[in-house]
Write a protein that binds this DNA or RNA. Structure first.
Lengths: 110, 110
DNA sequence: CTCGATATATGTCTAATACATACGTTTGAC
DNA sequence: GTCAAACGTATGTATTAGACATATATCGAG
C-alpha cells in the first residue's frame, strides 16, 4: 500500500492555523504535523495549496521583507476562508461519523 | 467543490461486507451506502475495485449461474483479505484520531 | 568560505474516484 | 409476445490530492 494517502487534511489544517494568526509557509509546514498527526507534510504541496487557496480568495498574501532570514510570503485568512473552514469543519464531522459507522461494523463481526 | 471525494471507504467497506458473507457486486452496491453513510456508490468503481482486489489476492470470485437472474460473479474474502481488513481497521482508527485532533483545534478557536 | 537551516517553488507520477455510457439477461405487466 | 424496468457487469475518461524529486536563493554560524 504505497499511496496510503490521508483524507483531505491539508487545506483545513492550513486554514485552521491561519485562522489563529497570519504566518508564512515554512511556519505552517512546521506546525502542520502536530495538528494533523502525521510525521511530515509535503513541502511542495503546501505552497501549491496556499497559492491555490489564494486564487480562490480564501487567503491573501504579501512578501514580508522586514522579517529576518530569506524573503517570506505571509498569508492571512479572509472571510471567505473562514467560511470555507466552516464547511471543512462540517465535512470533517461527517467524515468522522462515517468512519465510526464502518469501525462499529468491523468490531461487530468478531 | 465538485470533486469532494471521501477518504478510502470503498475497499474497506467491500471487505467488511464480504467478511460477513460471500456475495456479488450488485448486492454490495446496494449495501455499501448504508455502511459508509453515502447516498450512492459508483457502480463502475465497485466492479473495478473488486477485480483489483482479486488481482491482489484479497478476494476470489466465480460465476454463479445457478442463482436466478442474470449471471452473477460471487466474491469471497480470502485470508489475505482478512489481514488487509485488519490493516484497514487500524488505518481507520488512526484517521479518526487525526480528524478528532483537527476538530478539537477548530472548536478551540471560537 | 562553506555548510546547514530557512524559505519558496516547479515537475511528474499514481491512486482514488466522479461521471458517463454500454450491453446482455431476466422478469413482470399488458 | 413484446416491451419496459430491474438486474448485473463492465469500460472509458477526467479530475484531483497527495507522493516523491528536485531546483533555487538567502542567511547565520563557525
Amino acid at each position: 500500500m504505497k499511496h496510503r494517502r490521508g483524507f483531505r487534511f491539508l487545506e483545513p489544517g492550513l486554514l485552521a492555523l491561519l485562522r489563529e494568526r497570519p504566518t508564512h509557509g515554512y511556519e505552517l509546514i512546521a506546525e502542520l504535523p502536530a495538528l494533523v498527526g502525521t510525521d511530515r507534510v509535503d513541502v511542495g504541496n503546501v505552497y501549491r495549496a496556499l497559492r491555490g487557496m489564494e486564487e480562490r480568495g480564501l487567503v491573501t498574501s504579501e512578501w514580508s521583507d522586514e522579517l529576518p532570514g530569506p524573503a517570506k510570503r505571509t498569508y492571512e485568512i479572509t472571510d471567505e476562508g473562514r467560511r470555507a473552514l466552516e464547511r471543512w469543519s462540517h465535512w470533517l464531522r461527517e467524515a468522522r461519523n462515517r468512519i465510526d459507522t464502518l469501525i462499529a461494523r468491523l468490531d461487530e463481526g468478531r
